[in-house]
Design a protein around this nucleic acid. Structure first.
Length: 933
DNA sequence: TGATTCACG
DNA sequence: GACGTACGTGAATCAG
């Protein structure tokens, strides 16, 4: 067929496929000879998926996979540093490159490359040719360098996210249309490709300039008109560099190709050729899949079926497509029996539960899914309703379900069997559900925690995100079953047939992720982190959450009423001051009154154009203006009432009379926990009025609450990590660290220390932990920025090791893309090499992460050991608040618990680490949290 | 839904 | 002399 109108050309960015396949999969090797084939395997799966997905009415008529050839292109002749900062290709990837060409040919897809040109140039040339011939083009790539080609029938498709990028998508990314993308790129440069651009100008600023001047040439010609001096100077002085950058990013639409569009016509693969290649690579699953599909016999592959607890490594989990219609529905004991037997035989089983909601302490179990061999999963419906009401208005159970107790009795021994590994995604949730039904789940692996140990900072760790990223599969959205908004139903109302597909798929996905992650833990050297800091903590948290803490409803209720009364008084006072009624809770309206009606200075607008009225601004105004002071008073009470005294009451569990928070183990990238529903890690303490809310957190009759918290743990860790002798000695001597810092910095003897000087030093100490800046310290201390900068300079002069630590940490982050805690936890810093304001954020985060993260690791270790340490004592660990642990204990044994808990906490770093700085723990006890703290 | 504000370490 | 900044969280509320 001659390429022309009605034709549709697909251009696949082959290099992108290869690199994605390489990084998404563990380094698999061919069993027979050890040849690395992970990337080839992934590549073939992606091609297969691509072919499968493109058979419909919108199928392409022409297709080609385009590769780069060699590393030297005409761009290197223009600029010898082009792509010079690229890391060398990994050793185990190099031999796989030619195999990806062979794979493409085996699939009978045109495979094109051209010496001296990048794949992008070929794609550009073909796109233009196809467009000129009147056809459509889809470029399968997410490379932003290709966005300049979009428009007039040319689209991009991000196969990863299954997202089409059209003209609007380009504008979203670059702030300009495709025809101006190169102008923006020329200015912004590209650190990945080492395109210099204009220093100090990023995409945002570039788009602004191009939109204002219309084009790069116009901008450069009229650069003298620019107001900002630095920017003006850059554009004038760096003109050559910017023009060079444009040449580097501009794709060549006239590459000399030795083929035509007509040569790219879609062809069916030759079964023999394709299967020969796949079986030669020893891709068993994919070979079988395709041979079944084509109805031909595949060449035999040497069988070396491995047994044991380790998952099969050679079959990439992505090999197998998801087939929801094949999942089994288990309706009786006879059907369940073989699954339990198979789990015992294998030594592992993926488990997932379905429930009527998200509050593990209240919801009902609706069903259980299992998966032992990827692709084969089952769902056991147990609590589905048939939709018909009985006399009491509650539904009857649907037909065809096992009695709940029978299923649990059968599963109970398996789930508690120490020789069978249970595998879950966020298994803490499922374990808590099971626990309420008298079923213990142990031991268990958790794919969410595995992902967190390997990839904190890179992406989220929810099932949907992991499935899409690592299995290239978008799970059935729960919304498609439950609906959303107020018409949403609970899972027990979902028809069993639909539930099977959704629920079993979750177990299938979980098992596949586990098979993928298990070997990766070793390769990424985080096995110890996972095994000592993540996996053992999960059941500890589950028990703390289930235990909960008693909260006195009457205390909260009384406070609520008192707050409401006071707020009403403030409100009428505010209306009086303003001369009219308004919504005190609206920052926009408060701002309008202050900065427009009252005409005060100092108002700033947010990026949405609204007046901004944060507390520090109002505080500055409050000394002069009652209105600002009253708004602050009102806001404080509003916060206390809505978030604490009111909302907390709703969280008191009617069965236990206690509040059960949920800790999110993967919530903070640094290794800290997050607490939700409710958040018990931000109960007020700093203000006197707020602190009284802690009086509502009480011990049971005859018991007391204990609070043990690490003293200055982050500063101690900083002293240790940065190795600052003066700080370390001060901690060893038990000195007041802020006073000592102040003394060093300001040359004031300790016995002449004033509270104000100490306060400043304290602010600096904290600032250091956060990646200090003159601006931040100035704002915190409310002093001029120059003065703040002076303090910082002085601090670094006295403690030069701190600066070296900061420099070394940021450099490490730049080199490796992550930073580490002292216990080996990795926190990825993908933004560290970004340009623009993001760079500052990333740098400070990189400085803070090892410190905050090491402290988080220490208390995790303490928590993991704590249960054994206080076993036998009438005590329970209830809450963790970053550096504090809260216990409930029989009053007469409080001192024993304090002694043991303190010892565990103070020695938590050992034996993995021998800190030269002591960790010390302060303890308190009382009838309520306010007294204990 | 995103922005704003504010509670904690 | 331009810009925009303390690090890490979760929840309530407004506004579109």
């Amino acid at each position: 067929m001659q390429f022309g109108k009605g034709c549709h050309l697909h251009l696949i960015d082959g290099s992108a496929f290869i690199f994605r396949a390489y990084h998404a999969l563990p380094p698999l090797t061919r069993k027979s000879d050890g040849l690395p084939i992970g990337a080839v395997s992934g590549f073939c799966n992606m091609l297969y998926k691509y072919v499968e997905a493109n058979t419909g009415p919108d199928a392409p008529t022409h297709v080609a996979v385009i590769f780069d050839k060699g590393s030297h292109t005409f761009r290197n002749d223009l600029y010898d540093l082009y792509k010079a900062n690229r890391e060398a290709m990994p050793e185990d990837l190099r031999p796989q490159i030619p195999l990806t060409r062979e794979a493409t040919i085996a699939f009978n897809i045109a495979c094109k490359e051209l010496a001296g040109y990048e794949a992008d140039d070929i794609i550009a040339t073909l796109s233009v040719q196809a467009r000129d011939a009147g056809g459509r083009v889809t470029i399968i790539s997410s490379d932003k360098d290709l966005m300049q080609l979009v428009g007039d029938g040319v689209e991009m498709l991000d196969a990863m996210k299954n997202k089409r990028i059209d003209r609007d998508g380009v504008i979203e990314k670059f702030g300009v249309g495709p025809e101006r993308v190169v102008d923006v790129q020329a200015l912004a440069g590209d650190s990945v490709d080492n395109v210099p651009g204009a220093p100090g100008i990023g995409i945002k600023t570039a788009a602004l300039l191009i939109n204002e001047y219309g084009s790069l040439e116009e901008l450069l010609d009229r650069a003298g008109e620019i107001k900002q001096p630095k920017r003006r100077q850059t554009l004038i002085e760096k003109r050559d560099q910017i023009e060079l950058s444009k040449k580097l990013v501009q794709l060549d639409c006239n590459t000399p190709l030795d083929f035509t569009l007509d040569d790219l016509e879609v062809r069916d693969p030759d079964p023999e050729t394709l299967l020969e290649f796949l079986s030669g690579m020893e891709f068993r699953t994919l070979t079988k899949r395709i041979s079944d599909q084509l109805g031909v016999d595949a060449p035999a592959i040497k069988d070396t079926d491995p047994r044991g607890a380790e998952p099969e490594a050679a079959d990439a989990p992505a090999d197998l497509p998801f087939a929801p219609e094949t999942y089994a529905c288990i309706r009786d004991a006879q059907a369940l029996e073989p699954w339990i037997a198979r789990a015992r035989e294998r030594g592992y089983v993926a488990v997932d539960t379905e429930t009527t909601g998200l509050d593990e302490m209240r919801v009902d179990l609706v069903g259980i899914s299992l998966c032992i061999d990827s692709g084969k999963a089952c769902y056991i419906p147990l609590g589905h309703k048939d939709g018909s009401d009985d006399l009491f208005g509650s539904d009857n159970l649907a037909e065809g379900q096992m009695p709940l107790e029978q299923a649990l009795d059968m599963l109970r021994p398996l789930l508690a069997d120490p020789s069978v590994m249970k595998i879950g995604q966020n298994m803490k949730y499922d374990a808590k559900i099971f626990a309420r039904y008298g079923v213990t789940v142990t031991p268990y692996d958790d794919t969410m925690l595995m992902s967190y140990a390997m990839n904190a900072g890179l992406h989220g760790h929810g099932m949907d995100a992991l499935a899409e990223r690592y299995l290239s599969h978008a799970p059935i959205p729960i919304k498609s079953l439950l609906g959303s908004g107020k018409s949403a139903i609970t899972f027990d109302r979902v028809p069993i047939d639909d539930a099977v597909k959704y629920a079993a798929e979750d177990a299938d996905i979980t098992l596949r992720l586990w098979e993928l992650f298990k070997p990766q833990l070793h390769q990424t050297r985080v096995t110890t982190v996972y095994e000592t800091l993540e996996r053992p903590l999960s059941p500890v948290l589950a028990r703390m959450e289930m235990h909960g803490i008693k909260v006195d409803r009457d205390t909260l209720s009384r406070m609520s009423n008192a707050f409401a009364q006071k707020m009403a008084g403030y409100e009428s006072e505010l209306f009086e001051l303003a001369g009219h009624e308004f919504n005190v809770q609206s920052p926009a309206q408060v701002g309008a009154i202050l900065f427009e009606e009252m005409g005060l200075d100092g108002g700033k607008k947010t990026k949405t154009g609204q007046w901004s009225t944060p507390a520090d601004v109002l505080e500055d105004l409050a000394t002069e203006h009652d209105f600002a002071a009253r708004v602050l008073d009102y806001r404080q009470l509003q916060k206390l009432k809505s978030t604490y005294t009111d909302a907390l009451q709703d969280h008191i569990n009617p069965d236990t009379g206690r509040v059960h928070t949920s800790y999110v183990q993967t919530g903070a990238n640094t290794g800290r926990l997050a607490s939700t529903d409710p958040n018990l890690q931000n109960i007020p303490v700093r203000s006197e009025e707020g602190r009284r809310i802690r009086e509502a957190f009480v011990a049971e009759e005859g018991k007391v609450l204990l609070s043990l918290d690490y003293s200055q743990i982050e500063l101690r860790i900083l002293a240790e990590m940065a190795d600052i002798p003066a700080l370390k000695q001060a901690f060893k001597d038990g000195l007041d660290i802020h006073a000592m810092t102040a003394s060093e910095m300001f040359d004031v003897p300790l016995d002449q220390m004033t509270p104000d000087i100490r306060r400043r030093a304290k602010a600096i100490n904290f600032g250091v932990i956060y990646g200090i800046s003159g601006f931040g310290l100035a704002r915190n201390l409310r002093i001029p920025r120059a003065e703040a900068q002076g303090f910082i300079d002085r601090y670094f002069e006295r403690f030069p090791g701190i600066r070296s630590y900061m420099d070394a940490t940021t450099q490490f982050a730049k080199d490796h893309g992550y930073v580490q805690t002292m216990f080996g936890r990795k926190i990825h810093t993908p933004e560290i090499n970004a340009k623009g304001p993001g760079a500052g954020f990333a740098k400070r985060a990189a400085i803070n992460a090892p410190i905050q993260g090491t402290a988080a690791d220490v208390i995790r270790r303490a928590m993991i050991r704590m249960e054994d340490a206080i076993a036998g004592l009438p005590a329970k660990m209830l809450l963790q608040v970053h550096d504090e642990l809260l216990f409930e204990v029989d009053a007469d044994r409080a001192d024993d618990v304090i002694a043991r808990a303190r010892d565990v906490m103070e020695t938590a770093a050992a034996p993995a680490l021998h800190l030269s700085v002591p960790l010390t723990v302060d303890a308190g006890q009382g009838q309520n949290w306010a007294e204990a703290h």
